[in-house]
Design a protein around this nucleic acid. Sequence first.
DNA 1: CTGTTAGCGCATTCAT
DNA 2: ATGAATGCGCTAACAG
Lengths: 347, 347
Amino acid sequence: MPNIRDVARHASVAPMTVSRVINQPDSVAPETRERVEASIAALHYVPNRLGQGLRSKRTMVIALVVSDISNPFAIKQILGVGNAARAHGFNVIFTHTNASPTDERAQLRSLVERRVDGVVLSPVENTPDSIEFLQSQGLPVVVVDYPMPDNDVDIVRCDSVSAADHLTKRLLDLGHTRISMISGQKSIVTARERAEGYATAMKAAGLDTDVHFGEFSPESGYRLTAQLLDRASAPTAIVTANNFIALGAARAAVAAGVSVPGQLSLSTFDGLGTDLVLDPFFSGASQPVEQIASIATTMLLERVMGQYTGPGREVVLPMEFVDRTSTGPAPAQHGDRTGRSSPVSDR
Amino acid sequence: MPNIRDVARHASVAPMTVSRVINQPDSVAPETRERVEASIAALHYVPNRLGQGLRSKRTMVIALVVSDISNPFAIKQILGVGNAARAHGFNVIFTHTNASPTDERAQLRSLVERRVDGVVLSPVENTPDSIEFLQSQGLPVVVVDYPMPDNDVDIVRCDSVSAADHLTKRLLDLGHTRISMISGQKSIVTARERAEGYATAMKAAGLDTDVHFGEFSPESGYRLTAQLLDRASAPTAIVTANNFIALGAARAAVAAGVSVPGQLSLSTFDGLGTDLVLDPFFSGASQPVEQIASIATTMLLERVMGQYTGPGREVVLPMEFVDRTSTGPAPAQHGDRTGRSSPVSDR
DNA sequence: CTGTTAGCGCATTCAT
DNA sequence: ATGAATGCGCTAACAG
C-alpha cells in the first residue's frame, strides 16, 4: 500500500504538495495538481487516516454507545446518528453494552484508546461515572433519552413525565376511571418518570393510583397484567411504560379472554412501529427517536468542531401521540360502580 | 492527555519499558512493572491506538457494511458481528449503504482510509467490484447472505434454492396445487433463487408455475397478491420471498376478505421474529442470521490474524423451517378442480 | 506556489 | 531485564 511519499516521488513533488492537493486543492497550481492527481490514481493511493489523526489530533470518528440493542429503538438511533455523522464526514463506531455497567466501562475505555472525537451515549441505568470518565478525558458527550440533572452534559430527550400525564388524561377523557400503570425496573429513571406522570394525572382527577413496577419485558408485562385482570374490580385501562410490557399485557388479555379495547384499553410508550406489524395496534406515545439521535449528533459535532464550548445544554422534544386500536371508551359500568373503593394490592 | 513518554518519565524508565508493561507484562521485572503501573494509574494514561496502529499495521477494527438497515435482519447481523469481534478484542465500525452502490463505494473507501483490518459485507445487489476494490487493497472480506460464485472470497450463506424447494413441497404436502410465488426485484439474486427453488418443486410435482417478480416491499406484495386473488382461479397458497412481501400479501388477503389460512396459505422467507409480534403468524423458512454473522466474523478474523491464507471458502447453512398460523391444508375443492388447466398470466 | 523540518505516539530492532 | 535509535504516514509551521 503506497504512502504519501510514494505518490510524491511518482509526481516529482514534495509530500507536502500531495497533502495539499488532498486537503486544500486550491492552494496548488493547476498543472501540479493534475500531475499529483494522476499519480494518486496511478498508484491507487488512499490516504491513511491513522497518520492524519496522529498529527491533527482528530480522528473524524464518533461513537454511538447503546445499552440495549434488542429494542427496535436502537435501529433508529443508529440511523439518526449515522446519517448526521456522515453528513459531516464522520464515521461511527457502534457499540452495545448489554445493559452491563462493566461492559459499558470496557467499551468506553476502548473508545478512548481509539481517540474517537466524541460519544453519543444512550444509557439504561444512571451512570454518571461513565460520563465523568469520558469528560475527564476531554471527550465531548451527548446523552440521549435520559435525564442527567446533576451532570454538566448535553442531553436530548423527551419529557416522560408530562407525556405520561397526557396519556393518562386521554384515557380519563374516554371515561376510564380504573386505570392501572405497569412500569419497568424502579431503578430506571424512565420507569419512575412515566409512573409519576401517570400518578399526576390520576390525582388531578381525584382518582386512586395503581402503579406496578416490574421489568421492561413481555414476561413481566404479562404477569402483572394477568394479576390485574384477576382482581375483583379489574382496571378498564392500563398504561404500560414501554412496548415490551405492552406486548405482554396484550397477550395476557388474550389469555384471559378480555377483549381489547372492548373490555380493556391499552396505552403504551414507544409502541411498535407500523412498518412490520400486520395490524397497527398500540395507541400511546412514542419518541421521535431518529430525530433525537440526529439532533444529539449535531450537538456533539458542534463541540467536536469547537463551534460550541459552553455548558451542558438540554433539548426536550415533545412526544408524538398516536391513536390506534388498543384504546377505546370505557365499557358501560355494571357490577361495582366505584373502582376506587377497592383496596389496591401492590404485589 | 498524557503519552507514553510522560508515563516513562513519571516512573523513571524508558518509554519502551512502559510499552512492555502494557503489551508483554511478563518480560518486565515485577518491581519495575508495579512502578510503571502506578504511574499509569496516577496519570490516567490510556494508550493511543493510532500510534499503535501506525506502527503495527493493525488497527483491531473491522467493519460491518450492511446495505439495508430497515430490515430487522440488520440488528441480528450487528449483534452477531459485534459479539464475535469483541471476543477477539476487535471493535466494529458499522455502516449502511442505503442499498446505493455510490454510497457503498464511498463507505468502503472511507473504511480503507481508516485501515480497518477486514470487512463483513452484506450486499443487496451483486457488487463484485466492491469486493475487488477491497481485495485489491489487501483487505480480507467475508460476504454474508449472498452467493458470489465468480469471486475468490469467503462466503457464509443459506441455500435459498433448496429452501424454496422445500418450502413449496410442504405446501404441496398440505394438498395445495395452485401455488403462486411472489418474489422481489429480478435483479437481486436472492429473488431469482427463491423463485427457482419454488419452480423446481412445482415442476417435480407436475404442476404449472406462477412466478411474479416485484419488489421486496409490502406495497409490491400487496399489489401482486391483490391481482392474484382477483383471478378466476386464485391460488390457494402463495410463497413470498421475504417478510416485507408477506406482510403486503397478508394485508391484501384481509382487504379481499380472504381468510388466512382458511382460503389462502402464506409461506414466507425470513418471517418476522416472534419477539415483537403479538401473534406469531408467518410460517416459512428463516435464516439463522446471527449465526451467519458470527461465523462470518470468525472466518474474517482468521484471515486478519493470518491463521488462514487459502482460497475463498463457502459455508452454506441450513435454513430453519417454522410452522405458525399462516399455513394450513388446501381448502376443499369446489368449482373448477383443475387448477393447472387455467392459463397463467405473468403480469 | 512549493519545499524542508520536525514531531504526533508507539513498537520493532538492536544493543547493553 | 532495560534502553536508544528509528520510522510507521501524515501535516503544522516555517522557509523560500
